[in-house]
Nucleic acid binder design. Structure first.
Length: 648
RNA sequence: GCCGGCGUAGCUCAGCGGUAGAGCAACCGCCUCGUAAGCGGUAGGUCGCCGGUUCAAAUCCGGCCGCCGGCUCCA
């Protein structure tokens, strides 16, 4: 057989040759240094036979792909180690059943069905066994089996593997990797010897995971690990993880007294403390102002609605599982509102609408309640009662794209003002094989096209995700990661041809005839709760001046400076700034420390000199140097920063 | 909802069979100080809740509640 090298040279090899033979044919440093190969753009190991005529580029430990190879092998080593771990407890090897063990960002995991639950406390022992397997420098062997034989070998031993084999497409080989009697069904690729795995890994945690991600299937235990090429990388990763935990909005929420979730009030129900509420109010004020500039009108609707309303909208009983159950009275029933849309539709339907009124943009900070599964609740980012910066735009079909673009503009403006640069856009379309969607195909196709065009024309890069649409229409979501890398959806823009139909709303066109409007559902923040959770972590609690609960702390050096400190506060308050004088009987150093810990952006120290000159000593979080300036000047500067909503 | 872990003062944590401790915070007093912790004192807990084992339970066992990590879900 022949293969080609990146430089175009051809190599004649025996049939069934692998990248290892390529390395040997090349000679020189290659037999020693090659760890794998990129074959026609795909990562191969040194063990898998090459396809005829492939372009083969060898890789070494210096290439980034190396990491993928040893992380994958490490997953196998983990599975082998778990078998040894239980063998020591007297269990036979086949009592440890295996699911899948893939490579993930930073490391790997393996899904395991063990005879006894694996707990975090077992991980150090399993790690030790893994290190031992690396030291034994075991050779990996790869081979393929015909389907029937492969199934036969796991029949009655490991039902998970039998099913995984059955899932492999007919045209793909069924390959196994084996080291020291430990064999695993695996498509590879791997490093050829366990000794080639850098010993810089750590098992981080164990968690439950359903087989094949299906909640109706049995649950296995997923053991997670991280692995890097060098000790430094591992240390750095673990350090960054610790740092990230310090940003956790649940921790900062308590330390900075922003919010409280009290089990006595209810799971997933947020109590906003005075300081957190200031941030919340400022964000809402910001959104209100920006929406007003863009032609939105504010409305207010109640927290409940009759069951009939939701039956008409189609939400009930579609989402009965995630709703608080209806409140039933003698001859009527109400639902705590899980969304604001139907209420806004009824405002639209209040009177006959003309095409001249469109687009009609109705906005509301609407609080909704959803009965999220208890295991899903998470600080502010997944709650049971939350406030959407919601709006519904009623427009003609021709206006959809343009309105959609305007919402993208608003969302990007909001993100930009807050310095949120690390987000991705995702367009969710319909899964053509599912029947959970309502509305006709032509509308769906049109809406999906309009969204993609709008995003492209706004220069927005996006990914397409099939099956991610709402049941009533396709959508564009803005997704961010929290401090620990978990993904959360913030802003969302959705096109809906369905609700106007269900509520039979119309507008009168220039032709005097009734026409069906289109609805755009949109919420740039998504929910204020989730947005604040993300924002707290984004700023690590150090809110920009305009959002900071306490913007200025005034620290008098001694008691006799209290009067001047109060004067300073008065000047700041008059300019609309939130300032506090620290009159506690503490040393100024202690006061400064406390305010710094509270992440107050500006601390003003006042003593004899300042009182005499009418100045303040400024300690500004964004500047290294301290400086003294006339009070009036400082007030003016701070007020401007707030007015312009500067990020500092 | 499911799997695993955790739950001791407002916070961070020690104690892990012989009836509860530290630091910080709070409160009181002294100190009046020039840019990240001055000193002394006081008060604060049915050890998440319920039940069991034991002469004796914060400590061991079971159930429940809550939280954490993941899975599933997410209009």
């Amino acid at each position: 057989m022949k293969v080609r090298l990146p430089d175009g040279k051809e190599l004649e090899l025996e049939a069934g040759a692998t990248a290892r033979e390529v390395a040997e044919a090349l000679g020189g440093r290659w037999p020693k240094q090659a760890v794998g190969a990129i074959v026609d753009g795909e990562l191969y190991d040194l063990l898998k036979p090459l396809p005829e005529g492939a372009v083969v580029q060898l890789i070494t430990k210096k290439d980034p792909e190396y990491q993928h190879l040893f992380r994958h092998t490490l997953a196998h080593v983990l599975a082998q180690a778990v078998r040894e771990f239980f063998a020591k407890k007297g269990y036979p090897p086949e009592s440890v059943k295996l699911g899948v063990g893939p490579v993930i960002e930073h490391g790997f995991y393996y899904d395991i069905d063990a005879p006894e639950p694996i707990s975090d406390a077992d991980l150090p022992e399993i790690e030790k066994i893994m290190h031992d397997i690396l030291k034994r420098d075991l050779e990996l062997r790869r081979y393929e089996l015909p389907r029937e034989e492969a199934i036969r070998r796991y029949q009655g031993v490991d039902p998970y593997k039998v099913e995984l084999i059955q899932d492999i497409p007919e045209n793909e080989p069924i390959s196994f990797y084996e080291q020291e009697g430990f064999t695993d069904l695996c498509r590879g690729p791997h490093v050829p010897k366990t000794g080639m795995i850098p010993p810089h890994f750590k098992l981080t945690h164990v968690a439950g995971a359903y087989f094949k991600g299906d909640a109706s299937r049995p649950q296995m235990q997923r053991v997670y690990g991280v692995a890097f090429r060098s000790k430094e990388e591992l240390k750095d990763y673990l350090w960054r993880l610790e740092e990230a935990k310090k940003r956790d909005h649940r921790k900062l929420g308590r330390e900075l007294e922003l919010f409280l979730i009290d089990p006595m009030v209810g799971k997933g129900l947020v109590l906003w403390l005075p300081k957190g509420n200031i941030v919340r109010e400022e964000l809402m004020r910001f959104m209100r102002e920006e929406q007003q500039k863009r032609g939105y009108q504010l409305v207010t609707t109640p927290h409940i609605g009759s069951l009939e309303l939701y039956k008409t909208s189609g939400h009930y009983p579609y989402y009965a599982e995630s709703q608080f159950p209806p409140m039933e009275l003698e001859d009527e029933a109400y639902l705590l509102k899980p969304m604001n849309c139907p209420h806004h539709v009824r405002i639209y339907a209040f009177k006959k609408r003309s095409y001249r009124e469109l687009p009609l943009r109705l906005a509301e900070f609407g609080t909704v309640y959803r009965y999220e599964q208890s295991g899903e609740l998470h600080g502010l980012t997944r709650v049971r009662g939350f406030t959407q910066d919601d709006a519904h735009i009623f427009c003609t079909p021709e206006q959809v794209k343009d309105e959609f673009k305007k919402v993208i503009e608003l969302t990007l403006y909001v993100f930009d003002t807050l310095g949120l640069k690390d987000f991705r856009a995702r367009i969710g379309t319909r899964d053509p094989n599912s029947d959970k969607y309502v509305g006709d195909d032509a509308h769906w196709a049109l809406a999906e096209r309009q969204i993609q065009e709008a995003a492209s024309e706004m220069g927005l890069e996006y990914t397409l995700e099939e099956g991610d649409a709402a049941f009533y229409g396709p959508k564009l979501d803005f997704v961010v990661n929290d401090a620990l890398g978990r993904e959360w959806q913030l802003g969302t823009i959705q096109v809906d041809y369905n609700l106007p139909e269900r509520f039979d709303i119309t507008y009168t066109g220039p032709d005097g005839e009734p026409h069906r409007p289109v609805m755009i559902h949109r919420a740039p923040f998504g929910s204020i709760e989730r947005f604040m959770g993300i924002l707290i972590e984004h700023f690590a609690g150090e809110f920009p001046l305009w959002l900071a609960p306490v913007q200025v702390a005034i620290v008098p050096i001694t008691d006799r400076h209290h009067a001047y400190a109060e004067e300073v506060k008065k000047a700041l308050s008059a300019a609309g700034l939130r300032a506090e004088v620290d009159q506690r009987p503490e040393r100024m150093q202690a006061k400064i420390r406390d305010w710094e810990k509270q992440k107050v952006p500006v601390i003003l120290v006042v003593g004899d000199r300042e009182a005499e000159e009418g100045t303040v000593a400024v300690r500004d979080r964004r500047k290294k140097e301290r400086y003294t300036a006339p009070l009036a000047e400082v007030v003016q500067d701070l007020a401007r920063r707030v007015r312009e909503r500067r990020l500092e």
